[in-house]
Design a protein around this nucleic acid. Structure first.
Lengths: 214, 214
DNA sequence: CGACCTGTTGATTCTGCTCAATCAACGTGG
DNA sequence: CCACGTTGATTGAGCAGAATCAACAGGTCG
């Protein structure tokens, strides 16, 4: 069966596929700096533009009525966030460690829907993995998956920098920060990782970690 | 701040928003019938067209290497599935109870990216709720959320028909089918629901169920 | 009727949570 | 410089919710 270009997606599966198209279609605005813990948009706020991370780390969160929080996603340099199906944000975005954000305004003539779709589809794929993580994986497996994911995004297969505190990791992995501590210790005692510092993890056995995530 | 039409989304927030646009842009093919348990596409298969559910129910699944399954989504009449970020499906789709599916082929002249994006964004929103469900809700709350979701999609606020077996429900909610049974019993004993039959649930206290989901 | 499949229920185990103490790293102010 | 308070991380003890293991009931189909 044949598919149209609008369906077909870039075979070159680099992390920034579609991004260059998107940028040429947008008028890049200036970079705004958001200090640590600063809010980029709030839950319930009217949605509008998209945001491109230039540097630093961003978390997308949701909160239940009684205060339980889930971190839906972390975003680092080169990633786009701010999609919303209806007019309002049903999640909120905050800077984790101080981040530079560029607002993407659609330029008049261009039709960015194609590249937008591609970025949205990447988000879908990422979320599906996250779903599997939360629904069908143990605490150890979840941590292994996060470490490998971060390592890949940082372009370093051996060492991972944890820009976010334990609390954020816990809310991303669907557990408590105490369990995050314990799981890190467990992985350490299995010889899979080493804790260089509180926010620097050395991956000693990448193969074993990957075996835990599938 | 002003946003472009391509960003703006239909304010009339009916379930089928964007679908009519999509259908006019596509050449609707004939409806294919998939019997219960039939595979629509497999994990690892090359992705191509999109699929529109005409009747019946579809499940989108993922499987870990050691056989743990997660149902990422259920789709009923009027919903579109089959999106994939890269060229291959990293999930698989099956008919739950016998379903009619229409393959959507992009027509040559049209530019379906806009309506496609809208459908994809709806999928994103739905998945985010599912993430919260799996990450931060108890078994009872998860079941309440599913019941309300199905009731809304069936257009009936009082009664829900469960087209899928307990096993599918369990894998959608990230638990075991035994727990599904127990949770249904717990909700029944709390006077929130009534089990008309094995696959028919009457919602006795919608307000209380909604209070459990936020 | 018997085999089988789905669903329910019970008993027990176990993973991860709750509650709580401790510790290290900082920043502040006397 | 040191005492103090704060915050984030680690660790421990006990507990709870859901999983696992197992038995059993009800329906369907050969």
């Amino acid at each position: 069966m044949h598919i149209q270009p609008s369906f077909r997606v870039n075979r070159t599966n680099d992390a920034n596929a579609g991004l260059s198209d998107l940028l040429t279609a947008m008028q890049p605005a200036a970079v705004t700096f958001y200090p640590a813990e600063a809010t980029i948009y709030a839950q319930g706020e009217t949605a509008g533009p998209l945001y491109l991370v230039e540097f630093g780390m961003i978390r997308i969160c949701r909160m239940t009525a009684d205060g339980r929080r889930l971190v839906c996603a972390f975003h680092t340099a080169g990633e786009v966030f701010g999609f919303e199906a209806d007019g309002t944000h049903d999640s909120y975005a905050e800077s984790v460690d101080g981040a530079g954000i560029r607002v993407l305004r659609p330029s008049c003539g261009a039709q960015p829907a194609g590249s937008l779709l591609m970025v949205a589809l990447k988000g879908l794929a990422r979320m599906q993995s996250h779903l599997m993580l939360l629904g069908r994986r143990t605490a150890n497996e979840r941590m292994a998956a996060l470490l490998l994911d971060l390592a890949e995004r940082q372009g370093d297969a051996r060492s991972v920098y944890l820009a976010m505190p334990r609390n954020d990791i816990a809310d991303y992995l669907g557990m408590t920060f105490e369990t995050v501590s314990r799981v890190l210790r467990a992985l350490k005692e299995q010889g899979l990782i080493r804790l260089r510092s509180i926010s620097e993890v050395e991956l000693l056995d990448v193969a074993a970690l990957e075996a835990m995530t599938d």
